[in-house]
Design a protein around this nucleic acid. Structure first.
Lengths: 339, 339
DNA sequence: TGCGCTTTCTGCAGCGTTGTATACGAACCG
DNA sequence: CGGTTCGTATACAACGCTGCAGAAAGCGCA
């Protein structure tokens, strides 16, 4: 089973190798219909498949996109990764996936590995991108798009949702039910980030509270962005003496953990406690009670990220059409809010 | 920012290009310590990074592993994918991920794409691998390992769990609680497979039932392998006149959907209904009640799959050490069974 | 028929590595 | 002091493809 190369095809079709390439790639030069037919026939007969590695070598570009996420096992990132893969596939690209597991070194490791592989673009979902990673990106002069999160260490093209607006929306909605106040389960990064960037979620919540004349003092709690930690935090938080009447969580995953804690403590949701989440992951529709949350068009975002990284990720200063693509957040009312 | 190539390094180090390669790869030929030092220094000074594509081109192998799963958003597959990536990373490989979304064509599409990319191995999680896919694999003479599922269309190296044994174990455990019988929520493939391969889960359940002198007649139900469909099926199944006293589900994800349905119908688990799942996904510990299930060592399996595909996946007839690697299933007792 | 154009095809120089065949010293031996 | 042997380093031909420069062929028109 000797490998079939382009030369074999050219020979069989009675033409030159270049023409075979032109047929495969539709150009850069035109090929006469008759010739094209002969080449196509030869390709079929020999079962020829172009070697992508050689193509990449010669054309200096690959059909690869690198995607780095913290942990695709978390529903939100998993859905995001799925959407990115889908979008990439539509553009004929393959996706190299790397889970950083919230470890900075792993992030840099994958960054390096993917760039070495000459990916044609890199999509990063990370809130803790460090300087080392940024330096690596610069060194390779790579096309990078930040998705969902926008770390401070790096200045690049980003596709994000309007988190502040979304949090504001959710908090406001909760407030409209007449609860005395709304607490917030903010997120704490798995690995401490430099500085203390108040997350946009917290910011939006704070804003809505202040607008309604409520104090936020002592009403902000923290958990990792996943259900397991939120469950633990929830157990303490809800068992305490002055349990909040309503809680806005930074992620649905946290909300799910909180709901679980509430059930364990026999606290009725939404009867005794209202909850709202953020992200509208698929599971949010199947929690008990179904979760009121904030949605955004995930697949549109993924598509935007892929498009940006492929068409517009050039690092030439100022040459980009948009440096920031903001997607709107919308409220999805279910039952956990008390509606 | 011109690209730094090996030639630049060689020039700076005052040596030939081959020597640089030998240093990078710990050569096939030895390099004198002094020379190695100079080369290393030059590499550092220039910030040289070997081009993986060119390496692949010349060495005829890549550091890529292709992984095809039905849908990584489902917890089980997500955890599997994560484990594979982890294992691959330990071996210095990167992972190309493709979600088939249970569509045969997408599976073949990724198969083709990954093989064209000259992945050094392919790990497949699929129960519906068709002949087209098998032909594609043959055409490329690829190294393939089947993980978790073992479709009939293809004869290759596989890493699987003892599903029959696990299902038997779970059913038996349920039976020991004294329930009159145990129903089974079997899985139905998203896309109909040829023939009707009774899943191993069902087989194990059936065996345990028969051993205990129980009939399985009319006690087998079916749902897709995910929580959403199992929830729907569960609503009907549990609302019916003769509700089973205990149910063994083919996957934890199904069990979660079933639990959700039970709660909606105000059926107490495990008081009025015992449930056991299969897979021991992370979430199983956080359901209400925590799920009794069947576990196996996922990361060991992933590692085995990676090792097999890299070291042992040659398609030379009979040249393999093992064609089937079976991992044991163990019972994880939590509360949903009534213990 | 000859000229300028256009359209289509060909030859070939890369792309950045690997690894083989070979050259080069220096050390060792008789 | 020539010959052999080792340990290292070098030159260079692949690897399979792309895409440029330019040749060849076809075409319309004077």
């Amino acid at each position: 089973m000797a490998k079939v190369t382009r030369d074999d095809v050219a020979r069989l079709a009675g033409t030159s190798t270049a023409v075979v390439s032109y047929v495969i790639n539709n150009g850069p030069r035109p090929v006469a219909p008759a010739t094209r037919e002969r080449v196509l026939a030869a390709i079929k007969e020999l079962g020829y498949r172009p070697d992508r590695v050689a193509q990449a070598m010669a054309s200096r570009r690959t059909d690869l996109i690198g995607l780095i996420v913290p942990d695709a096992r978390q529903p939100f990132f998993g859905e995001m990764a799925h959407a990115v893969e889908q979008a990439a596939s539509e553009r004929g690209k393959m996706v190299l996936v790397g889970n950083s597991d919230y470890v900075g070194e792993r992030e840099v490791h994958y960054l390096r590995a993917f760039l070495g592989m000459r990916v044609s673009g890199l999509i990063l979902v990370s809130h803790a991108l460090n300087d080392l990673a940024a330096a690596e990106i610069d060194a390779w002069d790579a096309r990078v798009v930040l998705l969902h999160e926008r770390p401070e260490a790096i200045d690049d093209v980003a596709v994000v949702t309007d988190d502040v607006g979304g949090a504001h929306l959710a908090t406001q909605h909760l407030l409209e039910h007449g609860y005395a106040y709304v607490a917030c389960l903010g997120g704490v990064a798995e690995t401490p980030t430099v500085g203390d960037p108040v997350s946009d979620h917290v910011e939006g919540w704070r804003r809505a509270m202040h607008e309604a004349g409520r104090s936020t003092e002592g009403r902000l709690f923290e958990a990792l962005y996943n259900r397991y930690d939120a469950y633990q935090v929830g157990l303490e938080l809800l068992a305490g003496p002055d349990r909040p009447p309503a809680i806005f969580c930074s992620t649905d995953d946290q909300a799910i953990g909180l709901l679980r804690a509430a059930r364990e403590l026999r606290i009725d949701v939404p009867g005794e406690l209202a909850v709202a989440g953020f992200d509208d992951i698929k599971e949010a529709a199947l929690t008990d009670p179904p979760l009121t949350t904030i949605a955004s068009d995930r697949s549109a975002m993924a598509r935007a990220a892929v498009d940006l990284v492929l068409d517009d990720g050039l690092r030439v200063a100022g040459a980009r059409r948009e440096r920031l693509k903001l997607f709107p957040s919308s409220l999805v009312v279910r039952r956990s809010c008390g509606c």
